[in-house]
Design a protein around this nucleic acid. Structure first.
Length: 407
DNA sequence: CTTCCACGGGAACACTGGGGTG
DNA sequence: CACCCCAGTGTTCCCGTGGAAG
């Protein structure tokens, strides 16, 4: 009769949260503060869809957490609802370029939405493309394809975008237009001229939020998320300030607020205090590092581990690619693995750089050539244990660091 | 002006896991 | 069933290039 869960605080009605879900990134609020203009623009550009015309293609720019996706989804829902009311067939398809990051996958997904049976891999792409075309064209309608994180898709060749942009000339009933969402402002550079002009018929910019605007957003959500007066006055401004440093990332701010609440809850504190926010900020950062390192491919782990080993061994903190590559080769032979080429390793290093685990800058040392200076940009103590969790890397715990070390 | 090292673009290749066809 | 086709991914190979010390 004693249930295991009865004793756990988790089940008891939380004193802190009223509804934690509204702080999660997936939640789309009714009201998007400081995005009125973008909403209006977007709605204006899309409105022809309701009159049976083809809306212009749109390109949306803005850094992460500036409300791009939320805004688009919000407007989509409104548009679809209005379409139903007016009896015009209007459908929006949301595609995340992170998940569907190749032309094949995008068209296969689209074809499936329009009731075609297409395997997720195996066919020639043009076959999948024509299946999709046939599927959409079965009736008169307006289809708006939303490509979130298009830069992902575009970086692997712009064929998909090109095909999508000229599909209308091959359709007789349906009309297709697209919305590209990108957080990289320079990504059109790698597009074909024709695609660029077609996709960028209209452009909407989402500027980063400043601390003040973040405060508004947080306050509004906090009202729904938390019970009355559990937040100390300084909590929201502090969350906003932290996130404003991170180029005004609202997602970050909301995360911070939620985790602060969770920490307060777990500590049985009746209120969320400033110290909880600071702890939350730390925890989010270390969690991120652990998560990233854990999911690194094996070879990248070895490269990273080599850099860690170097920074433990030497007094200095920056290393040339040559040094890193040598250490990498030693690690490989220690593990009994074939090392990759230097060329490949420079790519892996760049990836680690983008992930923010290391810092790499190209320097020219004149007579002594050109290198990348590489340094760890996160504490080694938070990286090494995670690396050693990988059983394939276990032996590296005992690697003799100094070549000249005597036994 | 030369020289040096490795950066990073691009082509080519190997391999995988799924298709369709005879 | 055997066989070849296809997209996608990770890799190697080749090579032109940058830019300050000498």
């Amino acid at each position: 009769m004693d249930n295991l869960f009865e004793d756990l605080d988790l089940v008891k009605r939380s004193g802190i949260f009223a509804n934690r879900e509204v702080l999660r990134p997936a939640y789309i609020p009714e009201n998007l503060p400081h995005r009125e203009e973008q909403i209006k623009d977007l709605a204006g550009i899309l409105s022809p869809a309701l009159r049976g015309e083809t809306p212009s293609n749109i390109l949306i720019y803005g850094k992460t957490g500036t409300g791009k996706t939320a805004t688009v989804k919000y407007v989509s829902n409104e548009l679809e609802a209005m379409g139903r009311k007016m009896g015009s067939k209007c459908s929006l398809v949301y595609i995340n370029g992170e998940v569907f990051d190749t032309q094949y996958r995008v068209f296969a997904y689209l074809a499936r939405i329009f009731n075609k049976r297409v395997p997720m891999i195996g066919w020639p792409t043009d076959m999948v493309y024509s299946e999709f075309k046939e599927g959409v064209d079965t009736e008169e309608r307006c289809v708006i394809v939303i490509l979130d994180e298009v830069d992902r898709l575009a970086s692997k060749g712009d064929d998909a975008l090109y095909n999508l942009s000229r599909i209308n000339s091959e359709l007789s009933n349906a009309r297709v237009s697209m919305i590209g969402i990108s957080n990289d402002l320079t990504f059109t550079d790698l597009l074909d001229q024709r695609v660029r002009s077609s996709l960028g018929q209209e452009e909407i910019i989402f500027p980063p939020y400043n601390a003040e605007q973040l405060r508004d957003i947080l306050s509004e959500r906090a009202e729904m998320a938390f019970n009355e007066s559990v937040l100390e006055d300084s909590v929201i401004p502090l969350c906003a300030a932290f996130a404003a440093q991170e180029h005004g990332d609202a997602r970050r701010a909301l995360d911070l607020l939620r985790v602060s609440g969770e920490i307060a809850e777990r500590m049985n504190s009746p209120k969320v205090r400033e110290e909880h926010v600071r702890q939350a900020s730390e925890r989010i950062e270390t969690n991120r590092i652990v998560e990233v390192v854990k999911t690194l491919p094996l070879q990248s782990k070895i490269v990273l581990s080599s850099i860690v080993l170097l920074s433990k061994e030497r007094s200095k903190k920056r290393f040339s690619s040559g040094e890193v590559y040598n250490m990498y080769r030693r690690s490989c032979s220690f593990l009994g693995m074939e090392p990759l080429t230097q060329r490949r390793v420079t790519d892996l290093v760049s990836e680690l750089d983008i992930l923010g685990l290391i810092n790499a800058v190209i320097v020219s040392r004149g007579r002594y050539g050109r290198t990348k200076e590489i340094s760890l940009s996160v504490p080694e103590s938070s990286v090494q244990p995670v690396l050693l969790e990988d059983y394939k890397l276990k032996p590296l715990a005992n690697i003799k660091i100094r070549t000249q070390m005597t036994l």
